[in-house]
Every structure is written in C-alpha cells, then in structure tokens.
C-alpha cells in the first residue's frame, strides 16, 4: 500500500468512526471508534503494510506537538484561574498523583494475582 493509501485509510476510518458515533448517539469520540475499525481492518489483512506502519510511527512519535494548540487555550481563562488557583492547582496536582498511584498499583496487584493463579494451575 503506497503512503497516500495509508493516509486515506486512516482518514476513512476516522470519518466512519465519527459518523457511526453520531448516528448511534454514542458518547464515544469518533477517532476511538476509528481506531477500532483500523484494528479490525489490520486483523483481517493479517498485519499493517509497511507504509501504514511508518505513517503510524510518524504520527505517534510527534504526538506531543498535537496538544499544543488546545493547551494555549489557557490564555482564555486566566481570570478564573487567578481567582481560584489554589483550588484548581491543588485539585489537579493531588488528583493526578492519586490517580497515577491507584492505577499503577491496581495493574501490578492484579497482574501478580493473575500470574500466581496461572502458576498454581500449572502445578496442579
């Protein structure tokens, strides 16, 4: 598949995803459904072509850049943030750290439990 084919495929998956989310009234974002569609397509083909692989690598390697425009939107809310910076700052910082720890520990604990169960089964 040539590069333009890979670009068209990704855009097509996104478009169908957006349309499906809207038509079904799902609270899901179109691109997430688009990713599901692309995954199904790749599975059906037995793997992504070289061009699709490179395009995906390129997009994901520069993922950070894509968040910059939305972030600059902070300038629109400087007044509110100046007024409530203690509450906003504390809530964002503590909540983010709590979430990181809770989620990281859950993954580790459930993985350990699952591995332990598999091992016990293996021995029995």
């Amino acid at each position: 598949m040539p590069l333009q084919g890979a670009i068209a495929l990704i855009l097509l998956c996104q478009l169908v995803g957006e349309l499906a989310a809207r038509a079904a009234g799902l609270p899901l974002p179109g691109p997430v459904l688009g990713a599901v569609l692309l995954f199904l397509y790749i599975s059906a083909r037995g793997g992504p072509g070289e061009d699709l692989r490179q395009l995906s690598d390129g997009l994901l390697r520069h993922l950070s850049l894509l968040f910059v425009p939305a972030g600059v939107g902070l300038t629109e809310h400087l007044d509110r943030i100046a007024q409530e910076w203690v509450a906003i700052g504390t809530a964002v910082i503590l909540s983010t750290i709590l979430t990181l720890v809770a989620s990281g520990w859950t993954f580790t604990l459930v993985l350990r439990w699952q591995d332990g169960r598999r091992q016990r089964r293996g021995m029995a």
């Binding site: 990704i10 855009l11 998956c13 996104q14 995803g17 974002p29 179109g30 691109p31 997430v32 688009g34 990713a35 599901v36 569609l37 692309l38 995954f39 790749i42 992504p48 699709l52 692989r53 395009l55 995906s56 690598d57 997009l59 994901l60 993922l63 894509l66």
Partner: peptide
Amino acid sequence: GPATVALAV
C-alpha cells in the same frame, strides 16, 4: 484525530 486512529497499529 488521525493520531488516535493510528494507535491501532
């Protein structure tokens, strides 16, 4: 949007 779709790879 396209980058999110590309996560499928």
